[in-house]
Computed example of a mutant assay.
Amino acid sequence: MEGIREHTETMIEEERRGTGLSRTILDERGNPISVISLHKINQETGEATLGTWLGRPYWGKGYNRRAKDAILRLAFEKMALRRVYIGVDPRNGRSLRAVEKLPYARPVAEVPDEYRNACQGETNWFVVTREEFTRALNGEWGNE
């Protein structure tokens, strides 16, 4: 419980400073099932990181993908961000496969230090750019 409280307090403070945005995802009955957050929002560079947590009973049901689509739409259309990084622990195969399936995310080797240093241990990084996200949502992915 302490970890949840600490994370919540951190997100509240980040939102207050304008460097974070967190949303709770609800199921069809309005029950909270997930949290998705933009962290380390940098308006100057137009960048942020994305993190998600999804309750085990809801894995494999499309909630995480819909949540990512929604918060990325907000990041790019309302907040005018240019790039969002997603870091995944390579030991979490399920999470890694979920990000690899996103048509708008691509693996990257170089990540700004402020994002890389925020993760503990080995991390596989992906980036979503505004352009690639828009193309994917408009059905233009792979039609070049």
Rank of each mutant, 00 (worst) to 15 (best):
M1D: 07
I4N: 08
R5K: 15
H7Y: 15
T10G: 11
E14Q: 14
R16V: 00
R17L: 14
G18R: 07
G18I: 02
T19D: 05
S22I: 00
S22N: 09
R23E: 08
T24G: 00
T24S: 05
T24A: 11
V35C: 11
V35D: 12
L38T: 06
K40I: 01
N42D: 15
N42G: 04
Q43W: 03
E44P: 00
L50H: 05
L50V: 04
T52A: 13
T52E: 11
W53E: 15
L54A: 08
G55W: 03
W59L: 10
R65G: 02
R65W: 00
D69Q: 14
A70L: 07
I71E: 07
I71Y: 06
L74K: 11
A75Y: 00
A75F: 04
K78Q: 15
M79G: 02
R83K: 15
R83W: 01
Y85P: 02
Y85E: 05
G87H: 07
V88L: 12
V88P: 10
V88S: 12
R91M: 06
S95D: 09
R97H: 14
L102C: 08
L102F: 10
P103H: 04
A105E: 01
V108D: 03
E110V: 11
G121Q: 04
T123L: 01
N124K: 15
V127L: 04
V128N: 00
T129G: 05
T129A: 05
T129M: 03
R130L: 01
E131K: 11
E132Y: 00
T134F: 02
L137D: 00
N138M: 10
W141E: 11
